[in-house]
């Protein structure tokens, strides 16, 4: 047989370490990691204070919401779908949080309301997609309009958040030696960890990959395709709501103009993180790295000072192009 391997156990541990080459499925994520390290090194060489570990921690803090958004988007894209509604759901979440707090709700009730809304929206979109065969992008486009419209329905004006619990939560920091990290970042990392576990070690997670690989095969294998397909949109909706909460902690206001185009950032982060847009391949940790790459480009540009912020979008687009084209050729060769 073509790929017969040595019997595991016959080689010594050292042999295995020495001859270790990562399986091809990890190449994209390693490329992203190398890109991140490269950019970090570049910054460290060019700008004073860039190589400070706190820069890395700040990256996590500043992009906590995007990380969570990327987690939900990863689930959806892994099944071969897409979710355009997440930016609007973030805006809606900030607005629900701000409005309910303004109305005097307890912060916990407010948080519950936000998470519930996002989840239900995700559920509705998932049902439309699976049971009526509506293309994911058009169903989530409806979600985009719906969530944005609901945001305006609640308030056209910006509402600031002054609730004590929220502000405390927003600035709550944990010190690691002389460096600090905010709770929001820890929540984001926890989300990544849970998602990674679900994707790697549960039947639901493996079914997500199976659907992305071949939905008809998954069906013929007797897997729970309907449940899983709807499930990923529920997860994406929940993650968008959670991201919205983190965003409202970050920005301490609810505004219907928040997070316009954020779905594009999330999609870009997922793709740059090595997830195949056609589904089936990718890791949630890659999406975390994708967010970090986008974040560090932002930081580099702000350290530089002479470059304008629009370069972020152009560079993001170029990275997207590079990843999409390379993936295209990689998958074409395989088939």
């Amino acid at each position: 047989m073509s790929t017969a391997t040595v019997n595991p156990g016959s080689a010594s541990t050292w042999d295995r370490v020495r001859s270790f080459t990562p399986p091809p499925r990890y190449y994209p994520i390693l490329a992203t990691l190398a890109l991140f390290i490269g950019l970090f090194g570049l910054g460290g060489m060019r700008y004073e204070g860039f190589s400070d570990p706190q820069v890395l921690l700040s990256l996590l803090i500043d992009n906590a919401f995007l990380i969570v958004l990327g987690v939900g988007m990863t689930f959806v894209i892994l099944t071969g779908g897409i979710d355009l509604s997440v930016g609007s759901v973030v805006a809606l979440s900030t607005m629900i949080a701000a409005k309910t707090l303004q109305m005097g709700w307890s912060p916990y009730a407010s948080i519950t309301a936000v998470l519930l809304t996002g989840t239900v929206l995700g559920l509705l979109m998932g049902l439309l997609i699976h049971y009526f065969d509506i293309q994911p992008f058009i169903a989530t486009l409806a979600g985009l309009f719906l969530a944005r419209g609901l945001t305006y329905l609640i308030s056209v004006e910006s509402i600031s958040i002054s609730d004590d619990t929220f502000t405390q939560l927003a600035f709550k920091t944990v010190y690691i030696g002389e460096y600090y990290i905010r709770w929001t970042a820890i929540i984001a990392l926890a989300t990544v960890a849970i998602a990674a576990f679900v994707l790697a070690r549960t039947r639901f997670g493996r079914t997500v990959y199976a659907i992305g690989g071949s939905e008809s095969s998954a069906m013929l294998m007797g897997l729970r395709v309907a449940f899983t397909k709807v499930g990923v949109y529920v997860i994406s909706g929940f993650c968008a709501a959670l991201a919205g909460l983190l965003f409202s902690l970050y920005i301490l206001s609810g505004n219907s103009l928040h997070a316009i185009g954020m779905e594009l950032d999330a999609i870009a982060a997922v793709v740059i993180g090595g997830t195949l847009l056609t589904g089936g391949r990718g890791y949630v940790v890659g999406s975390l790295l994708g967010v970090m790459v986008l974040g560090i480009i932002k930081t580099l540009i702000s350290f530089d000072g002479t470059l304008s912020s629009y370069w972020i979008r152009i560079i993001t687009g170029l990275l997207l192009l590079a990843f999409v084209v390379v993936q295209r050729f990689a998958t074409r060769r395989r088939s």
């Binding site: 897409i82 992008f137 185009g261 370069w311 687009g317 074409r332």
Partner: peptide, 25 residues
């Protein structure tokens, strides 16, 4: 042979940056 939705997404992301670059923000 890239899927249309993905292919045009690239310019959707980069386009506004290009537009800003032309007007210098």
């Amino acid at each position: 042979g890239i899927q249309p939705i993905i292919a045009t997404l690239i310019l959707m992301v980069a386009g506004r940056g290009i537009s800003m670059a032309i007007t210098d923000g």
